[in-house]
């Protein structure tokens, strides 16, 4: 996993609540067995509307996605994260994210930043009025600020996740370091486990 420290750039104002994973990436693209190449299919249905924000060239390739509450609700498909990432997005800012989507973003090194609705409203209006204006998301200091520094907010992230993201550590290798602990624990449960073989 690549390390992430700071994301700087324009923000896409996707002003909708409860954006579900079926909108982010429709089921028909889940037949693919690759991890990449989902960007062109992201938000396929909504992109048919010329007025949809992602069709506005001013936001093309912007690395920050501003959106409403409960973004990523619905399916556990990580393809949704791969699709958003395929658009060039590296950080998402919303009042609240769906749990599985948030976990999936973390796995892919995408930052999910939760701020109060009032802050989202402010950033949304700003991105709509001044599409070229930039934001700086800084993981180290846990802050989001406007590039001119006039506005700044702190966000929360648990220390463990922050530690891992800053260093780009691979989750599986870290867990495998605890193999002796897992094996010892497992031995206490062997009788309770529902074996699927034999």
């Amino acid at each position: 996993m690549r390390a992430v420290r700071r994301v700087t750039g324009r923000a896409i104002p996707l002003n909708r609540a409860n954006v579900d994973t079926d909108q982010i990436i429709p089921a028909q693209y889940l037949k693919r067995i690759e991890r990449t190449g989902y960007g062109p299919f992201a938000f396929e249905a909504w992109r048919k509307d010329p007025a949809f924000v992602l069709n506005n060239p001013a936001y093309a390739g912007a690395p920050i996605l501003l959106t409403g509450a409960n973004f990523g609700s619905g399916s556990s498909r990580e393809h949704a994260v791969w699709a958003v990432e395929g658009l060039g997005v590296r950080a998402l800012i919303a009042p609240k994210f769906a749990d599985i989507f948030k976990n999936n973003c973390f796995q892919g090194g995408l930052l999910t930043i939760e701020l109060p609705q009032a802050d989202i409203d402010y950033l949304m209006a700003r991105a709509e009025e001044l599409p070229q204006s930039e934001l700086v998301v800084d993981l180290e200091s846990q802050t989001v600020r406007t590039a001119d520094g006039a506005w700044e907010r702190r966000f929360e992230i648990d220390a463990f996740r922050k530690y891992r993201l800053l260093r780009g550590l691979d989750d599986i290798s870290m867990t495998l370091e605890y193999e002796p602990d897992v094996a010892a624990f497992e031995a206490t449960r062997s009788e309770l486990l529902p074996t699927t073989t034999g």
């Binding site: 991890r35 990580e78 976990n103 999936n104 796995q107 989750d171 599986i172 867990t175 897992v182």
Partner: peptide
């Protein structure tokens, strides 16, 4: 509970999950 593909890989490899 449901998990994403990276977590599926984590469970396959370690039989555990960080949650």
């Amino acid at each position: 509970f449901g998990i994403g593909t990276s977590e599926v890989e984590h469970v396959l490899a370690t039989q555990t999950l960080r949650q």
